[in-house]
């Protein structure tokens, strides 16, 4: 009786083992196929990278860039006189906006109204911002178009 039970158990274990081995075998086939596929993809990617690099080299070649620059840009070679050293730089201009200020544009306008104006170059670049403050009556239209621009500038911050 016991022998018969053992027999059935052994048969059951055998069937399970066979199923398990089959699964491992199947899985390994799947993995091997995946590996082959990835390898070929890898090779394909490497080939693509190589041809893209070659293409980039062609697009990036100095001869081509120079030709495009000459055709489309007003750039010119740098003359030796256009280089300068750091100790020749002028001092940093006084800060227009205080670092922690909650209303940066407001504080720029405040600073501008003070008679002690900063350096000329800063005043020039600040002019478009200062322009709308005294708008003449006939140019109200212009002032109106400029005001939203200032507002959007504030939103961007």
């Amino acid at each position: 009786m016991i022998l018969r039970v053992v027999n059935f158990v052994v048969i059951g274990v055998l069937v399970l083992a066979a199923a398990y081995v089959y699964r491992i075998k199947f899985d390994s086939t799947v993995q091997a196929e995946r590996l082959t596929k990835i390898r070929s993809e890898l090779r394909h990617e490497r080939d693509t990278i190589a041809s893209l690099r070659a293409e980039w080299g062609e697009l990036d070649s100095p001869a081509r860039i120079e030709m495009l620059t000459k055709r489309y840009l007003p750039l010119k070679p740098i003359a030796p006189t256009q280089f300068d050293t750091f100790n020749q730089l002028p001092d940093r201009p006084p800060q227009l906006v205080k670092p922690g200020s909650s209303d940066p544009i407001g504080s720029i306008i405040e600073n501008l109204e003070e008679p002690a104006a900063p350096t000329g170059s800063i005043a020039d670049s600040a002019e478009p911002v200062a322009a709308p403050s005294p708008p003449p009556a006939e140019e109200a239209g212009v002032a109106e178009t400029e005001r939203p621009a200032v507002k959007s500038g504030r939103l961007d911050r």
């Binding site: 080939d47 190589a50 041809s51 690099r53 070659a54 980039w56 990036d60």
Partner: peptide, 9 residues
């Protein structure tokens, strides 16, 4: 590091 010569397939 600019490419002077490369292989393409």
């Amino acid at each position: 590091g600019e490419v002077l010569a490369t292989d393409v397939r």
